[in-house]
Simulated scan of single mutants.
Amino acid sequence: MALLAQIQNDVRAALKAGERERAQALRMLANALQNAHKDARGRTVDEVEILRRERKRRLEAAEAYERAGDSERARAERAEAELIDGYLPQPLATEELARIVDEAIAETGASEPRDVGKVMAAVMPRVRGRADGAEVSRLVKERLAA
Rank of each mutant, 00 (worst) to 15 (best):
L59I: 15
E54D: 05
N31C: 02
S111K: 12
E77G: 06
H37Q: 11
Q90R: 15
A93P: 08
K118M: 11
E60Y: 07
L29S: 05
L83S: 01
T94K: 12
T44D: 14
E66G: 10
E72D: 12
V101G: 03
Y65M: 06
I84Q: 04
A32T: 07
E66D: 15
V116L: 14
A64M: 05
A81S: 02
G117F: 02
D115E: 02
A25I: 09
R78G: 00
N35M: 10
L97V: 12
D115T: 03
E112I: 12
A81K: 03
G69Q: 13
L51T: 03
L33Y: 10
L26W: 03
R67H: 09
E112K: 14
P89W: 07
G86V: 04
R67Y: 11
A79T: 15
V116S: 02
R58D: 04
D70Y: 04
R52Q: 14
V45T: 07
A122D: 06
V119Q: 06
Q34M: 14
R99I: 06
K118S: 07
I100S: 01
L29G: 05
Y87Q: 08
R128P: 10
V45H: 04
N35E: 15
A110M: 10
A64D: 11
K56H: 08
A62N: 05
D46G: 05
L51Y: 09
R78K: 08
M124V: 10
D39V: 04
L59C: 10
E63D: 14
R27K: 14
R126M: 03
L29D: 10
R41T: 13
M28P: 02
V119F: 12
V123D: 01
I100K: 02
I100E: 06
A106N: 01
V48G: 10
R27A: 11
D39Y: 10
A79N: 07
V48H: 11
E66I: 13
V116D: 12
A25S: 15
A81Q: 01
R53N: 09
D115P: 05
L26G: 01
E107C: 12
E82Y: 08
A36W: 04
A25P: 03
L29V: 13
L83K: 01
A64Y: 08
S71T: 07
E47D: 13
L59E: 15
D102K: 15
V123A: 00
H37I: 07
T44P: 12
R114V: 10
M28C: 02
L83G: 02
P113F: 08
R27W: 07
E72G: 11
E96R: 10
R99E: 09
